[in-house]
Nucleic acid binder design. Structure first.
Length: 251
DNA sequence: AAAGACCACAACCGCCACTCC
DNA sequence: AGGAGTGGCGGTTGTGGTCTT
């Protein structure tokens, strides 16, 4: 097709966003919304491409974003959704309100993957590593002698022979068509029914994940309005920002 | 205290899907 | 029908902070 780049490289700023740029983008979108991302930088007076603006907004500036580390329960959800969906970060993120695909992807690559490996669980297939030594143990062709790098580059392709990027678990769920959680996910529905779905669904080994979510869901915890404070911080550009250039206190 | 290694995460890149004309 | 434009996704990279030697 031969498409144009999303922006002509000339005169377009790249790299980390300044507080002033953030402020401009926030003010513009809160006032006007974003009808067309390509037009946003021009209208907002930013020397950025629309794609960069969209990314900055969705991954960092969006008012409904949660900040800070994922709770253990959120982490567990990510692991389970990954087992079912593979590297479909946006789908996974959609089930965790206030979290972005980028955030979850980063978390997976930096934390969870290592954690699972440490526990002897293959982060790709979500099966015990030693079980994969036997040919019939896993539908995957992954073997234990693969390095972490190989697993990474393999992504979820290693577990998915078909071209549609489905994990074996999700493929079987879809083919079976009986998993309410999966049907919810595939229908892109909001996570409002998640509690019930967790209670209904159980994994291959019969574990009932409903018990994991016995109490409040992670996103019900307080702090969902912290963005207001953050925006106020951004608007206070003359003073010292209480948040770092990345937008939240660093570790 | 300094240097190098390692880690975490924001941002970029390239591709794909969808819509419009 | 198919080209062009746009949004969105997943993989990767760059950068700054922290840790280790």
């Amino acid at each position: 097709m031969g498409r144009r780049p999303c922006c002509d490289k000339l005169g377009v700023k790249k790299g980390p966003w300044s507080a002033e740029e953030d402020n401009k983008l926030i003010n513009f979108i809160l006032a006007n919304g974003h009808c067309c991302w390509r037009a946003v930088p021009k209208l907002a007076g930013l020397l950025r491409c629309g794609k960069s603006c969209r990314l900055r907004w969705t991954n960092y500036l969006r008012p409904d974003l949660k900040r800070g580390l994922l709770s253990e329960e959120e982490e567990r959800l990510v692991i389970d959704f990954h087992a079912r969906l593979g590297n479909r970060w946006s789908k996974i993120a959609a089930m965790l309100p206030g979290r972005t695909d980028n955030e979850i992807k980063n978390l997976w690559n930096t934390h969870i993957k290592k954690k699972l490996l440490k526990m002897g669980i293959d982060p790709v297939t979500h099966r015990p590593l030693h079980r994969q030594a036997s040919p019939e143990a896993s539908p995957s062709t992954v073997t234990t002698d693969k390095s972490d790098d190989q697993l990474q580059s393999q992504g979820n392709e290693g577990q998915i022979p078909s071209s549609d990027n489905r994990s074996p678990a999700e493929a079987s769920s879809i083919d079976g068509g009986t998993d309410p959680l999966m049907s919810c996910l595939w229908e892109d529905s909001a996570p409002v029914l998640l509690d019930e779905l967790w209670q209904l669904s159980s994994d291959d080994d019969g574990n009932n994940y409903g018990s994991v979510i016995a109490g409040r869901m992670p996103w019900e915890e307080e702090g969902s309005s912290e963005w207001l404070l953050d925006i106020q911080d951004l608007e206070n550009l003359d003073g010292e920002r209480s948040i770092s250039a990345q937008g939240y206190p660093r570790r």
